[in-house]
Design a protein around this nucleic acid. Structure first.
Ligand SMILES: [Mn+2]
Ligand SMILES: [Mn+2]
Ligand SMILES: [Zn+2]
Ligand SMILES: [Zn+2]
Lengths: 128, 128
DNA sequence: GACTTAATTGCAACTTAGTTGCATTTGCAT
DNA sequence: ATGCAAATGCAACTAAGTTGCAATTAAGTC
């Protein structure tokens, strides 16, 4: 596990709750909400939110608000965008869009909203 | 006023609440939350949310979630991105980023998060 | 302009993601 | 092992947004 590496050098304790959380984030290859997490492991929501908040302070995790009013959290790997489908609410990591620039601004996160590949095909089948 | 033009051809009534709302959105050159609106005009939140929701169905208005847990609404002009500052929570329209493409996907909205020009300068003054 | 009717409004009650206070537990350094 | 600050779990709370319902209003028809 690379979990010890994520935590070391940071000024936070490696508790069992944090181990479980980070393992889950590493396993899931997509951002997770508290609802997603509590389906997998037993954890109080106060503990969850206090921990992801701390992880964000330490730049271990980053997060964004989806269109279902929930916040999604994931291990911060490298600058990449997230696509949120307005039809099926699915979330995908978009690694092709990486280095957007805007004079004078520092861009830390890019969120794209629209219609995903699947929902697009469902509405505009290729035979039409 | 161009308000009648925004409403005509759509299947909704032009009520005084809607007139006030659209006037406010047109005047403000930035997206507004319900809190912003109720500081300017007296309007029940149910009326506000039901109306902006209808405006969105009719493609008169579009909206996005900021990082202060509030949703912001504005007249839909043309495809342009919005920048949300993670430091000062200000929101700016970014008209330079306009036609992003992603094979197979339909992109309807782009949200950039980061540090705005002002906050950037405050932390990294030009003399350093 | 009066009549009719469906759409809209305003209020209060509700929902729900996320926060906070506090007593108890746990990680970690000495 | 001991001590203590940090972390946990529970319950109470907050606040943006939603919903049911009775009263009001826009807009078409006569
Ligand atoms: Mn990602
Ligand atoms: Mn804008
Ligand atoms: Zn989809
Ligand atoms: Zn700023």
């Amino acid at each position: 596990m690379q979990i010890e590496k994520l935590i070391e050098e940071k000024k936070i304790k490696l508790t069992s709750a944090r181990k479980e959380l980070l393992e889950l984030f590493l396993k899931a290859q997509r951002p997770l909400s508290y609802e997603d997490v509590k389906d997998k492991i037993k954890m109080d929501k106060a503990t969850f939110y206090r921990n992801v908040s701390k992880f964000e302070e330490e730049s271990i995790v980053n997060s964004f608000e989806s269109n279902d009013k929930k916040r999604y959290y994931g291990i911060y790997v490298s600058a990449h965008a997230h696509f949120i489908c307005q039809v099926c609410s699915s979330i995908e990591c978009v690694k092709s869009i990486t280095n957007m620039q805007l004079e004078g601004y520092k861009i830390q996160d890019v969120i794209l909203k629209g219609v995903c590949k699947q929902c697009n095909q469902r509405n505009n089948p290729p035979s039409s």
